[in-house]
């Protein structure tokens, strides 16, 4: 009983904080909708907020490589329009893949920042005119560092992505709290046959992801199965429920 009361109180506080944030917060904190009602509906701003820090990472083997997470961020920034700063310790990104989800190579400025990825991200977020900044963060992203990035993003209005990567699936650095507005996990899923009516035909269909919104300030967590970014960076909810229903409530405990 006491537990339920506490949860209710927390909910109440959360909504009040959200209201204050929306009232005083960054002028015109607007959002980039996914164009998918179930996802946009769970986000406080009705989409991915501009002028905010978002955290994305992969799952399983891809936690180390962040390939799906990079495409997820690239697809969003492709739709945001405008130049993008992509900060890596050492570039292992293959630019044609970004172009294939609509993020044209001439829009992306790459920086190899070695151990100073966060610093380069902040430098980029202080620059007006960028649509977004992506930082590939190995290791920690503490409360102070993430708050600095969040404040810088609020000032410039850019979408900031901290693409977390780790060789260890149980990396304690990933569990540390930070000031990111949302936290996403993108896990590859087995894809259906390339041709639904001829399952034995060899070939690869569009890749599928399990998209998990683990935390969203002012929103609700959720989980969806989507078809990965198309040529313009858009996601599509998977219509057939062969891999299980994409009902958010079903996996709420996962967050």
């Amino acid at each position: 009983m006491e537990q339920a009361g506490r949860i209710a109180l927390l909910e109440e506080l959360r909504t009040r904080v959200a209201r204050i944030e929306r009232a005083t917060g960054a002028p015109g904190r607007i959002a980039l909708p996914f164009g998918l009602a179930p996802i946009d509906g769970t986000l406080a701003e009705g989409g991915l907020a501009h002028g905010a820090l978002h955290e994305v990472f992969g799952a399983g083997l891809d936690l180390g490589h962040g390939a799906a997470a990079a495409l997820f961020a690239a697809g969003i920034l492709a739709r945001a329009g405008g130049p993008v700063l992509w900060v890596s310790e050492r570039v292992d990104l293959f630019a044609p893949a970004l172009a294939s989800v609509g993020l044209a190579p001439e829009r992306v400025l790459h920086v190899e920042a070695g151990r100073s990825v966060l610093l380069a991200m902040e430098e980029g977020l202080r620059q007006p005119g960028l649509a977004g900044v992506v930082g590939e963060v190995f290791g920690r992203l503490g409360l102070t560092a993430s708050r600095r990035l969040q404040l810088a993003a609020e000032a410039s209005g850019a979408i900031a992505f901290a693409l977390r990567r780790s060789r260890r699936p149980d990396d304690p650095a990933l569990a540390e709290p930070n000031a990111a507005v949302t936290r996403w996990r993108i896990a590859p899923l087995p894809s259906p046959p390339a041709l639904a009516w001829a399952p034995d035909t060899p070939g690869l269909g569009p890749p599928r992801w399990r998209l998990e919104l683990l935390r969203a300030r002012g929103g609700r967590p959720g989980s969806w199965i989507v078809e990965a970014c198309d040529a313009t960076g858009g996601l599509a909810l998977v219509a057939d429920l062969a891999d299980g229903p994409a009902v958010p409530e079903r996996r709420r405990h996962a967050g």
Binding site: A95, P96, P105, E106, V108, L109, V111, E112, A113, A120
Partner: peptide, 13 residues
């Protein structure tokens, strides 16, 4: 200035 001139670039076809 901070990371060196060769470390800021675009990746073009």
């Amino acid at each position: 200035a901070r990371f060196g001139e060769g470390r800021v670039f675009r990746l073009l076809p």
